[in-house]
Design a protein around this nucleic acid. Structure first.
Ligand SMILES: [Mn+2]
Ligand SMILES: [Mn+2]
Ligand SMILES: [Mn+2]
Ligand SMILES: [Mn+2]
Lengths: 151, 151
DNA sequence: GCGGATTTATAGCCTTGTCTAACATTTCGC
DNA sequence: GCGAAATGTTAGACAAGGCTATAAATCCGC
């Protein structure tokens, strides 16, 4: 078979049990459903910290999407109890939103510091951290933390 | 301010430039659009390798989703030139699909081996790797590889 | 405090990804 | 090789996340 993806690689994962993998995929799908909300609340917290308020126009500029996209997503976050908003006003985090933001910022920081301590340049580290942060378990975070502190 | 997410944390990322962050978010959104296709082709390659063929029912069981979900996604992958399929028959990878599968398997292996070499248990490593693999740059992979080999 | 610039909201379109229900085809045991 | 079981397809619902176009509200400079 030409170009078999399974040619001569040390097969760490070839013998993983099927149902274990199902769980992994289900976990990843669950994580994916929260990614955007996590990025939003983390960003909103940062904007409030930095600028005093979080306006849709600034959220949109930071994320690189259009304002109506932000508006629609904010509606969902509001429905889900993570933010409060009044028409034509800037956005606030609920208690729950602040808690999530804090957790996200912590994860983001740990992943970022870890990648940098591994030797990665800060720009790439930031890009990778922005994606990885949503997929690291608490155990992995502990190991990342330990490594970064120890090096 | 009660429970400010920005309380007293070593602020590695507080001074990151705004436009740098926009790029990070854009990159992550791009990566997110490919995640599912990557998981599918990697899995299809593995099923073909292990079972001789990749049937929708097995893909569905492995991913933990329903068969019609798989069917619809396979239509997209076919449209995108990653697989070929005939009605009521199992699925094949195109050249392009095989190339992507190989790349994904490589990333998956590297991330998994790295996490395990860091000290993570295999189950958690598998779960985290399944999500992280889609968000690691080539640079990060190189560092992961080096670390795993060195330890 | 008016009027133009900026910001926000709404409506509507498109794609993706999930599901269930119903139907079609293939496979398998006998 | 028949009929039931298994598998695959299709249709249609729904939510999310992106967009553009348009309308409404707010803000700001004068
Ligand atoms: Mn992120
Ligand atoms: Mn983040
Ligand atoms: Mn994956
Ligand atoms: Mn994978």
């Amino acid at each position: 078979m030409r170009d078999d993806p399974h040619e001569a690689l040390p097969a760490v994962s070839d013998d993983r049990s099927p149902d274990l993998r199902v769980g992994a995929f289900q976990g990843v799908r669950a994580a994916r459903r929260n990614e955007l909300a996590e990025d939003y609340v983390e960003l909103i917290a940062e904007l409030i910290h930095m600028q005093g308020e979080a306006r849709p126009v600034d959220i949109a500029a930071s994320l690189g999407v259009k304002v109506p996209t932000v508006s629609k997503t904010l509606d969902r976050l509001s429905r889900e109890g993570l933010i409060t908003r009044a028409k034509y006003r800037s956005v606030f985090l609920t208690e729950e939103g602040r808690a999530l933001a804090k957790e996200c910022r912590r994860r983001h920081e740990i992943v970022l510091r870890f990648l940098i301590s591994l030797g990665l340049d800060p720009e790439t580290a930031e890009r990778d951290a922005e994606g990885i942060e949503h997929h690291v378990s608490e155990r992995t975070l502990a190991l990342f933390s330990a490594f970064a502190n120890r090096s």
